[in-house]
């Protein structure tokens, strides 16, 4: 159904704009700003798959983006090395978060709230009030490059989405994570370690956030302390609209990607008709609420009918 909405939405936008929206330039702009919402949505979805929340998505992304910027611009680290460090750091922070959740048994919400606070501080510590922009032109070129008007970064995001989807569909650890999220007791009785699933989920979530940070560094003219500040809420919106369940057990990669697409579509439509940017948020709120209430109603009806 989401696909139908996407296609219909896009086509009507093309028609409404008198065809202008089908032009190469417009397409490129449209997709240029899609990877970040897609990727943060995926990062959150991975955490949700085992029933965890990751409030540190934006803070970690911002921190990593700034860290990579500083590494390249101030310390002269070559771009590939900086990227590798960034990815490793993201995964490490995720693993640490997961370990804290498992070993202290403190609610993951609180742990990620704390790591979020720490990372925001660290990000500010790194860049202060300046904007770091004097880094690898190669990376920036990659950020602007496109094939047939489709930006490379968008293809990268799609690739990540495909990998995540494959991980949850076909890799044993992915299946075990879903088993833990769906029914922890049954998972234990089948020899699955729920603790390991939680740690792995946070690690992967951190890794995907790190990829988002790389993309951000590539597409932005520069990085500063505001990066990541507005990621948190959209990161929840995409998977929830896409059909993820907060208590775990679902991995809706396609849904998350399409939901991010729809949000982007709303934003483009808004720009096309020169409405205020804030209308987008209003629509997203309405859609989130509408989706969950509808799903809920359908569930109730189904369980009511079968008993």
């Amino acid at each position: 159904m989401l696909i139908a909405i996407c296609v219909a939405g896009y086509l009507s936008l093309v028609v409404a704009s008198g065809g202008a929206f089908a032009s190469g330039n417009a397409v490129q702009t449209f997709f240029q700003f899609l990877p970040v919402p897609v990727l943060i949505g995926l990062a959150q979805m991975i955490a949700l798959s085992v029933g965890q929340l990751n409030l540190a998505v934006g803070a970690l992304g911002g921190f990593l983006a700034c860290a990579m910027g500083v590494l390249m611009a101030d310390l002269g680290v070559p771009a590939p090395a900086a990227i590798v460090i960034g990815l490793a750091l993201g995964a490490a922070v995720g693993a640490l978060t997961g370990a804290l959740v498992v070993f202290t048994r403190i609610n993951g919400f609180i742990v990620t709230l704390a790591t979020m606070t720490i990372l925001i501080g660290a990000q500010y510590r790194l860049v202060g009030t300046r904007t770091v922009s004097d880094y690898s032109p190669g990376l920036k070129e990659f950020g602007q490059a496109s094939v047939l008007n489709i930006p490379l970064v968008f293809l990268l995001a799609l690739g990540v989405a495909a990998l995540v989807a494959m991980f949850f569909r076909a890799a044993a650890p992915g299946r075990r994570m879903l088993a833990s999220g769906s029914n922890p007791l049954a998972a234990t009785l089948s020899g699955v370690s729920n603790d390991r699933s939680v740690i792995l989920a946070h690690t992967l979530s951190g890794l995907v956030v790190a990829i988002t940070a790389v993309v951000t560094v590539a597409v932005s003219p520069g990085v500063n302390r505001s990066i990541g500040g507005d990621w948190l809420l959209p990161s929840f919106a995409a998977p929830i609209i896409g059909g993820a369940v907060l208590t775990g057990g679902t991995a809706v990669v396609l849904g998350t990607v399409l939901a991010a697409f729809i949000v982007r579509l709303v934003d483009s439509a808004r720009a096309e008709f020169s409405l205020q940017p804030s209308w987008v948020n209003f629509v997203v709120g309405a859609v989130v609420l509408g989706t969950v209430v509808l799903t809920r109603a359908r569930e109730t009806r189904r369980s009511g009918g079968s008993s």
Binding site: I240, L246, V280, V283, G285, A286, V292
Partner: peptide, 18 residues
């Protein structure tokens, strides 16, 4: 609706933000 408060207040936040 019985929907989790996290989701409902998240949606409310978006709506008001808009």
């Amino acid at each position: 609706t019985g929907v989790n408060s996290f989701v409902v207040t998240l949606a409310m936040d978006f709506a008001l933000l808009g």
